[in-house]
Design a protein around this nucleic acid. Structure first.
Length: 571
RNA sequence: CGGGCAGUAGCGCAGCCUGGUAGCGUACCUGAAUGGGGUUCAGGUGGUCGGGGGUUCAAAUCCCCCCUGCCCGACCA
């Protein structure tokens, strides 16, 4: 491609409404252009990267045995009513009417359509398993779209859906897809980690998110550097316990005056002991009544874990005004001893601790040496705390790290949630009707490209991984001299003949402008043809990554670059 | 949905308080010089000042309503 014939419009200044690096750089480099909140035009350069990403996804999906189809973006409301999501999905579902006032949606996801298709086409266990995917534009009417392609309203997503006659078959496909996802992100040189994710309201089955580690990530990821255990912070566990708190013999219960100590920190300071030797009492209101949750003083509650353990949907901290009525004491001095009758659960870290310091359910008073069984009833222990950096890994006890991450993929064992509701059944060997067991597998194409930029850039611009760079090589002639122009053109043609994806910066611009633009857009490789070096029969080539200038003959530079591209393509 | 800020040329902004011919930088066009990291000078093109209504001889500017965008929070995942 010749630059002068192409459509590239770089910006010197950053549009005022861009707030993350990938968005700023993509807008400045002329890859995307905002049309409305969360809605973008993919300009030619941006489209090239997206299409390269799509090609990688296609290859790996096909390799994993998935079959491509394409479903409509516009879907009839009936299907959504049938699955129940017409009601449940909420405002994120963009609803539209046609000229006959019939209801449609712009698809945010395609479980309904695919299930409808499969139930009409598949009727025997002999036709299963089946794994279908598409790469398509989705629309989710996000309350607050932001971060460019990272969280748009309209976005390109690869979504796959698998159908099975047994959970073993689902497990098999699930693992294949998991491996395919890792292969995709590895090919883009993305530092990523597959993490266990909360299954939320859908419940029961396994779910993994693929997180790209990056500062600007919206999610927190727990990761073990040793065994590669990874989990969403909401879901993560640790083998946390403190051997220094080996149980002491139970001492006599004692009431102590602790004036003005409403927080755990205050109590620790007042008594001159670390907060990890205290017990924190939280009271939550749920749809099944109030629940008291006990944690070690230095740990933070994890509301998702608590919700899952209690099997409740609503969990809210009790308001101060309700304490007297529900617990029988003032807020800030709350504890299990002498409280009103309510369900009490405790974090497993407390199981081995004796002689607790807890609130006395009276103003300015705490209790020392409280012991379960003797002073209060408690038999339910589980993991209720949020993992902290440095906690031991649940698998290998290495200290865990916590990173920021961008969710680029999410795979999920759906089970029969949709097949049951939508009557998607097959006949088994015995001729009996069974709901198909389903899996679904999403991957954000644009988000992955944006994540690659978040992970790989510098002050001058983007540093593309070769597989998703809009062009692999830029050839930059400096000056109008005939031999410079001719050598650049020859190198350009030879690179093209060798199969390289190359752009020739044939604009009549000063060197500085060409260099700034090349760095901003971030072509991985560059060949500069200038009069000075050419007088010695040499050109200069460099990687965007380190910008170190290497001199070589045109043929030598060409060979080096072609060789590097070949190796990069093989991964 | 609540709170805050903003909307003036493709992009970044000033002008508004105190009403009186629409401005700067950049981008783009023309010319000259320059020619290895966004070069300099000169001359130009481009805007119904987000929309509607009102006040006024006169509104980008004052008043009212609406729309859109951004930030924080809530919601959702």
């Amino acid at each position: 491609m010749r630059w002068s014939q192409y459509f590239i419009n770089t910006l010197r200044e950053v549009p005022a409404d861009a707030d993350v690096i990938s968005q700023k750089l993509m807008m400045r480099a002329g890859m995307i252009r905002k049309v409305a909140a969360g809605i973008y035009t993919y300009l030619p350069l941006g489209l090239r990267s997206l299409q390269k990403m799509e090609a990688i996804v296609r290859e790996e999906m096909n390799r994993a045995g998935a079959i491509e189809l394409l479903m409509p973006a516009i879907q009839p409301a009936e299907l959504w009513m049938e699955s129940g999501r017409w009601q449940k999905y909420g405002k994120e579902l963009l609803r539209i009417k046609d000229r006959h006032e019939r209801d449609f949606v712009f698809g945010p996801t395609h479980e309904e359509v695919i299930t409808d298709t499969v139930r009409d086409s598949i009727s025997s266990y002999r036709q299963l398993p089946l794994n279908l995917y598409q790469i398509q534009t989705k629309f989710r009417d996000e309350v607050r779209p932001r971060f460019g392609l990272m969280r748009g309203r309209e976005f390109i997503m690869k979504d796959a859906y698998s159908f099975h006659a047994s959970s073993e078959s689902l497990d098999e496909t699930y693992i294949k897809m998991r491996d395919a996802y890792s292969a995709i992100f590895n090919r883009c040189a993305l530092e990523h980690v597959p993490v266990e994710a909360d299954t939320g309201n859908i419940g029961g089955s396994a779910s993994h998110e693929f997180m790209v580690l990056a500062q600007s990530g919206e999610d927190a990821v727990v990761h073990c550097p040793s065994c590669n255990y990874g989990a969403n912070l909401e879901k993560a566990t640790s083998s946390f316990f403190d051997p220094s708190t080996a149980p002491e013999p139970a001492a006599e219960l004692e009431e102590i005056e602790t004036p003005g100590t409403k927080s755990i920190e205050d109590v620790g300071k007042f008594l001159g002991v670390p907060t990890n030797s205290l017990v924190k009492t939280l009271v939550f209101q749920t749809e099944n009544g109030p629940v008291m949750v006990l944690l070690r003083g230095d740990r933070q509650a994890n509301e998702i874990k608590i919700k899952n353990f209690l099997g409740v949907q609503n969990l809210e901290m009790l308001e101060d005004a309700q304490f007297q009525e529900v617990v029988g004491g003032p807020p800030g001095y709350c504890g299990p001893v002498g409280a009103k009758k309510l369900r009490v659960v405790a974090d497993k870290s407390l199981e081995a601790m004796t002689n607790w310091v807890v609130g006395a359910n009276a103003s300015d008073k705490h209790l020392r040496n409280a012991n379960r069984g003797r002073d209060f009833d408690l038999s339910e222990f589980s993991d209720f705390t949020t993992v902290e950096a440095g906690d031991p890994c649940p698998r290998c006890s290495t200290q865990l790290n916590i990173h920021r991450g961008i969710e680029v993929g999410h795979i999920f064992k759906l089970g029969t949630r949709y097949s049951s509701e939508m009557n998607c059944v097959y006949l088994d060997e015995k001729g009996e009707r069974q709901p198909m067991i389903m899996g679904c597998y999403g991957l954000g194409v644009g988000r992955t490209v944006a994540a690659a930029i978040e992970q790989s850039h510098d002050d001058d611009g983007i540093i593309w991984p070769i597989p998703i760079a809009p062009f692999e090589v830029v050839v930059t002639p400096l000056g109008k001299e005939a031999d410079v122009q001719q050598t650049a053109m020859e190198i350009y043609e030879q690179l093209r003949a060798a199969g390289a994806d190359v752009i020739l910066d044939d604009r009549d611009e000063r060197p500085g402008v060409k260099f700034k633009d090349a760095d901003l857009i971030g072509f991985p490789l560059r060949i500069v043809v200038g009069a000075k070096s050419l007088a010695n029969g040499q050109v200069e080539w460099s990687f965007r990554r380190d910008k170190e200038r290497r001199l070589a003959t045109p043929a030598g530079a060409l060979a080096e670059i072609v060789d590097h591209l070949d190796r990069a393509r093989k991964g």
